[in-house]
């Protein structure tokens, strides 16, 4: 019987090794280890054995059974693994096919520019002030040292609604309103972005509606050198550390002294090209020390308080920064245009 068991073991192991599918393996399991299998049969025949032989054969039979079972399990693992590999091989896909699209929109380029400027100045302690787009003549002009009869307030240049109301021509009235709200006390540090309107025919460089973003700082010791330092930080962050800035004297009714700021031309590096009209410089913004008349009208003692203000056009900055060649693109909202600004820099 011992020999028979050994034979069975060898025979079964050989068959297991030769098996090539899980089904075949299962058949072997049933054939050898099943209730009707030869090992069971051997065990069933143990009644005929002597008391001495019985435990020996019993132990041997269990050994054989376990050896076969272990072999089957090993083989089964092996076959299963192979089956998984085979299945995966058949499941392979073309990873170069496009994915299921997720719709992504984006900021309008002007919003991108405005938020970038806002964030830059928020970091420097500024708040964002907003005001009405329909303004009183007083806040749009008079409070900014542009009295009635001033040539800069020609009816032809502004969209008047009545004698007293017009679409604001700049965001400066927000400055006047903010100062008035502060009741003659400092400090004020604000950025005023918003839509403004002028009576221009729309063409590649003019738009009857456009954006402006202005800044105002009023305090007891605000110096022109502070304006220069602030604009320097702004220009370098906005346009790059390698850009030079240049301040030129200029004229605005609401500032004295007045400043115009140029940055060195990125295209030619300052040597002169068509973009900078051969000058090497590109005009970016207007600024200056707040005119004492403006401070006084808003209730500030101009002997005690000084301030600086600056203003720029997001369209112009976007045009320079992104190379946009026609201002009308910003208001046409062609999706082929808008899509190009979904990239975060």
């Amino acid at each position: 019987m011992q020999e028979r068991l050994k034979e069975l073991q060898e025979e079964a192991i050989q068959k297991v090794e030769q098996s090539s599918s899980l089904k075949e393996l299962n058949d072997i399991r049933v054939a050898y280890l099943g209730k009707k299998g030869p090992i069971t049969e051997v065990l069933r025949g143990m009644g005929k054995l002597s008391a001495e032989e019985r435990p020996v054969i019993g132990a041997l039979a269990n050994e054989v059974r376990e050896a076969i079972a272990a072999k089957i399990e090993a083989k089964q693992n092996q076959l299963e693994e192979a089956a998984v590999l085979e299945k995966m091989a058949s499941e392979s896909i073309d990873v170069t096919l496009p994915g299921r699209p997720v719709n992504v929109g984006s900021h309008h380029p002007l919003t991108k520019i405005i938020e970038e400027i806002e964030d830059l100045f928020i970091g420097m302690g500024y708040e964002i002030a907003e005001g009405p787009e329909v303004e009183q003549d007083y806040y749009n002009f008079e409070a900014l040292n542009l009295p009635k009869g001033h040539p800069a307030r020609d009816m032809q240049d502004s969209f008047y609604i009545t004698e007293e109301l017009l679409l604001r021509t700049h965001t400066s009235p927000v400055q006047a309103r903010t100062m008035e709200k502060h009741n003659g006390k400092g400090p004020i540090k604000i950025i005023c972005p918003g839509k403004v309107y002028r009576r221009d025919n729309d063409d590649a460089t003019h738009s009857h509606q456009f954006m402006q973003i202005e800044g105002l700082v009023v305090g007891e010791n605000i110096r022109m050198s502070d304006l220069k330092g602030t604009l320097d930080v702004f220009a370098k962050k906005m346009f790059g550390q390698d850009r030079e800035i240049r301040l030129r004297p200029s004229f605005f009714p609401f500032t004295e002294p007045s400043v115009e700021m140029d940055i060195s031309c990125k295209v030619c590096g300052g040597h002169g090209c068509n973009v900078c009209k051969q000058t090497g410089w590109i005009e970016i913004l207007g600024a200056g020390m707040v005119h004492p008349n403006v401070l006084e009208m808003a209730g500030y003692d101009s002997k005690k308080y000084t301030g600086f203000a600056f203003g720029m056009g997001p369209e112009r900055i976007a045009m320079l920064k992104y190379g946009v060649d026609d201002i009308r693109h910003f208001y046409t909202n062609d999706v082929r245009f808008l899509k190009q600004f979904s990239v975060e820099e």
Partner: peptide, 25 residues
């Protein structure tokens, strides 16, 4: 004075004095 002294010659500084927290409403 500023323009004939030269805007280039004015130093670059940042406002000093009481600070304001920058924020969005």
């Amino acid at each position: 004075v500023a323009r004939l002294f030269g805007y280039d010659n004015i130093p670059k500084t940042l406002p000093i004095g009481s600070t304001t927290p920058g924020k969005l409403s």
